[in-house]
């Protein structure tokens, strides 16, 4: 197994608040890696640092061996490292199919190809992926009119449409109807196994993340608290304490 993302000693502070201190983690190619931690422990900050949303104070971030901590968001996304947002972001005034077609991987197109119309195959692929997340019936509805959970599914489908190498998911199950969560876990796992996309997931729902991830990192107060397999993390007293506030 090769390391696809290597975060080495990354620190980031906002004003005087240290959101991340000297964090080092690794994400293995082809696997599912989890990131947990209590509210305000710096998980989303770390995600934002990786995707280039803000400059980091110190440390290094490598993607497929290439240093990316100096690159802006678009350049990193064009390497195939994609993220979804905690507060879902979709193009609300367009319908689902249009949302999907916009998410075509433009990084793989030349300018000449960008000046062509989408082919039948592109449409089929968009509809296939909408079917995959269970939004086929609603594909011609304004996406802004969908429920929050459905919008999350749409955002996930859009990310798949972009054919990423790695997908960073920020709380994919938050706000989703509990009865649908099992279906979502299943789809995430299939995205990983069938499409070969490496997943790196922030998740609050312990049952979900323990069920999926092969390796989990736990943050607390902006520092790396523990790392290991789901069983190791479950048995780690420090993690239990962090969640119960005893830390």
């Amino acid at each position: 197994m090769t390391k696809i993302i290597e975060v080495n000693g990354v620190s980031k502070s906002y004003g005087g608040v240290k959101a991340n201190t000297d964090i080092s983690i690794e994400v293995e190619k082809g696997g599912i890696t989890g990131l947990i931690g209590p509210n305000g422990s710096g998980k989303t900050t770390l995600f934002n640092s990786i995707v280039g949303y803000h400059p980091i104070d110190s440390g290094s971030i490598k993607f497929e061996g290439q240093e990316i901590s100096k690159k802006p968001v678009q350049d990193i996304a064009r390497l195939g490292l994609l993220r979804t947002f905690q507060q879902t972001r979709i193009y609300g005034d367009m319908n689902c199919v249009e949302n999907m077609l916009i998410s075509m991987p433009h990084r793989k197109m030349t300018i000449r190809e960008a000046f062509t119309t989408n082919t039948r195959a592109d449409h089929d692929r968009a509809e296939h992926l909408l079917d995959f997340v269970g939004l086929y019936e609603k594909r011609f509805l304004r996406s802004g009119s969908l429920s929050f959970g459905q919008q999350k599914l749409l955002e996930f489908a859009m990310a798949l449409m972009n054919e990423p190498t790695v997908l960073l998911l920020d709380e994919p199950t938050a706000g989703i109807n509990p009865t649908l969560i099992n279906g979502l876990i299943d789809r995430l796992k299939r995205a990983n196994s069938e499409f070969g996309i490496t997943l790196f997931i922030i998740e609050h729902n312990m049952r979900v993340i323990m069920n999926m991830a092969d390796r989990i990192y736990c943050l607390a107060h902006g520092e790396l608290l523990a790392a290991g397999s789901p069983t190791e993390i479950q048995g780690d007293q420090r993690v239990v304490d962090a969640y119960l506030g005893a830390h």
């Binding site: 996304a77 994609l82 947002f85 972001r89 075509m104 197109m109 960008a114 000046f115």
Partner: peptide, 20 residues
């Protein structure tokens, strides 16, 4: 596809950047 991309910029530029 190019026009779809500029529509994406109109609706949510930050998302469009995050999509590469």
């Amino acid at each position: 596809r190019f026009a779809a991309a500029i529509n994406a910029i109109r609706d949510d530029e930050e998302k469009a950047e995050a999509m590469g």
